[in-house]
């Protein structure tokens, strides 16, 4: 008796799953960059509205995971937000779908408005330790950085070049906590994705170029990283359709409206 009820239940469950999935539905999985993840989710939603026979799943994990899962086949599309792709990604087809500026931010009470690339590098290396050395008040600099492995940190260090982060820099594990730390500490300096700047922090000019969408698109602002979508082998079928959709006028508009910059 017990067994029969159990079996019946299993059949019912299996039935529900089959109906739920729908027959012949193609599914695409994206994994990787947490910076691009929210955008990918939004784009996936829009794409699925137009193509009800495709199911797009978006997972995070970071750029390293994106590259890894695209090469292993765990995900059809890997997302990575690095300036230069590492060796492991050489065999993958990469497409730049968006760009993201990295802003160097300080507390609004800090009177510094501009740093040169060299000054920024020296601050993060620990060679400049007091704001007065770059024209500010006589107070120590608190450097705030991201954790090792973060795409933002890797890009930041690759663009500024020759950075060995000073030992006593504070480490925060997201753009949001960097923003909070800088907003709370008058002496601090950090960096984050330019889409996340708000009135609690102040983005400073780098080599006299302001961190704005216009300057980034014009190619004037230096700290910019591309966001790659990585596919193993040739792009075919729905994977190609999805990436084409992201690059379409509509897809790029979604990216722009939500704080990233279009690829072209």
């Amino acid at each position: 008796m017990f067994k029969r009820v159990f079996m019946l239940g299993m059949f019912l469950l299996a039935g529900i799953y089959m109906v739920g999935c729908g027959r012949g539905k193609t599914s695409i999985t994206l994994a990787g960059s947490t910076a691009f993840q929210p955008f990918a989710e939004k784009l996936a939603e829009q794409f699925m509205d137009k193509n009800p026979n495709v199911n797009v799943t978006v997972q995070g994990g970071g750029s390293a995971v994106g590259i890894q899962s695209a090469s292993s086949g765990a995900a059809q599309i890997g997302m990575a937000d690095l300036v230069t792709l590492p060796e492991e990604a050489k065999g993958l087809t990469s497409t730049v779908v968006a760009k993201d500026g990295i802003a160097i931010v300080v507390n609004p009470k800090n009177k510094i408005n501009n740093l040169t690339t060299d000054q920024a590098r020296d601050i993060f290396n620990g060679k400049i330790v007091n704001w007065k050395e770059v024209g500010g008040d006589d107070v120590p600099i608190t450097v705030v950085s991201r954790e090792a492995g973060s795409g933002t940190r890797t890009s930041f260090e690759q663009i500024l070049t020759n950075i060995t982060l000073k030992k006593d820099a504070l480490i925060q594990d997201s753009n949001g906590t960097i923003r909070e730390t800088v907003a709370n500490d008058v002496n601090s300096v950090g960096y984050l994705s330019h889409g996340l700047i708000n009135e609690k922090i102040k983005a400073i000019k780098i080599d006299d170029v302001e961190c704005t969408s216009e300057m980034i698109i014009a190619g004037q602002y230096k700290l910019v990283r591309p966001i790659f979508l990585l596919v193993k082998g040739e792009m075919v079928g729905e994977v190609k359709n999805f990436i084409d959709y992201i690059l379409s006028v509509e897809g790029q508009k979604t990216i722009k409206d939500n704080g990233l910059l279009p690829a072209k």
Partner: peptide, 22 residues
């Protein structure tokens, strides 16, 4: 007054991005 990282914090901070040896 120095900033420090504990063993637990090290795991939690870096786990999300770590691959391979890391």
């Amino acid at each position: 007054l120095d900033s420090v990282r504990t063993l637990t914090a090290n795991i939690a901070l870096e786990m999300s991005y770590a691959t391979g040896m890391h």
